[in-house]
Design a binder for these strands. Structure first.
Lengths: 168, 168
DNA sequence: TGGCTATTTGAGACTAAGTCTCAGTTGCAG
DNA sequence: CTGCAACTGAGACTTAGTCTCAAATAGCCA
């Protein structure tokens, strides 16, 4: 069974378990999220749906994202910008982010010894951790190689620009 | 020389060095920031000034905060809420935050071995870090002791509520 | 299958945080 | 003291997100 189908299934189970309804809008959104985007924001999603001529209102996007977060399928994260981003979880455990400030790409990593050290710190401060959030901002390998050349648009930027064009 | 005076001085040096002007508004804001608040947001600052009958517009608050960040005296941080917070730097090096999700209090810590580990991770991923950002959310010692008792207002909450009252 | 009703949706008003504009004011170099 | 570049305040504007309410619909039950 492809991942998308499995995740749609999981979400529907969650909905039923919560006494909520399985609607076309909700299913279409989960399909979209799990078939393409790894990291995305609400606006990107809204735009993608518009692009595909699937009419879903902004309110529904936000409402569904909230449900997805509650269901544990999706996580809401800050990626150093002034609005939230979302990423899907699909079974993988917690991870943190390296964020390239030049091209905007996001590299994930998970490091148990980093996590362990955090727990030690919490213990020392008598703090009971429930969640954490680490972003390391900097320059990715590809951008560093390109050096100081006046930013020739890379993949991520091109996507963004295309999106901007279409949005107009 | 009291800290406040020293920081006002530093900021004025920065302004002069940048060909910018030393104004009453800028000086009043730096004095306010460095004499009381450790962590604060723009709105709190705006409110505090209003309270003291020092008329400073929202635009100037934001403009001055930007200058303070550029001067390195103040840092802009995310503390798990949907708007920015600021904290003053005053010579101390980088640190990260434990944030209590019950009372909102913020505990700072600095852990060299955590930082070292982060550098190792970056090296492995060929990523050149410039900055990072770690928040650990959870429950502080005081709140944990209070257990499940329906949140009796603690210091931080009281301050917030007072502020809300006055703002009306 | 068809009706009923609680849930959901869309449209758009609203809010919060922050930015921008522009006319009037002020710091400060000469 | 004067002139002008820099600054400020007021408020319009923007962006991201929330809320409201009437209309639509999922899905239970007969």
């Amino acid at each position: 069974m492809p991942i998308v189908q499995r995740e749609i299934h999981r979400f529907q189970n969650f909905l039923v378990a919560q006494g909520l309804k399985i609607t076309n809008e909700r299913t279409a959104l989960v399909r979209e999220i799990f078939s393409t985007h790894y990291h995305f924001d609400a606006d990107e999603l809204l735009f993608k749906m518009k692009e595909k001529s699937v009419k879903i209102s902004r309110a529904t996007i936000y409402r569904t994202l909230e449900l997805l977060v509650r269901s544990g399928l999706v996580r809401r994260v800050h990626l150093g910008e002034d609005h939230y981003h979302y990423e899907y979880v699909s079974g993988n455990s917690h991870h943190d982010h390296l964020i390239c400030t030049t091209c905007g790409s996001v590299i994930e990593f998970h490091d148990p010894s980093l996590e362990a050290r955090q727990l030690e710190i919490c213990e020392r401060k008598k703090f009971t951790p429930t969640f954490h959030n680490l972003q390391i901002l900097g320059i990715c390998d590809a951008c560093r190689r390109k050096g100081e050349q006046p930013a020739s648009p890379d993949r991520v930027q091109m996507i963004t620009e295309d999106a901007m064009q279409l949005r107009k």
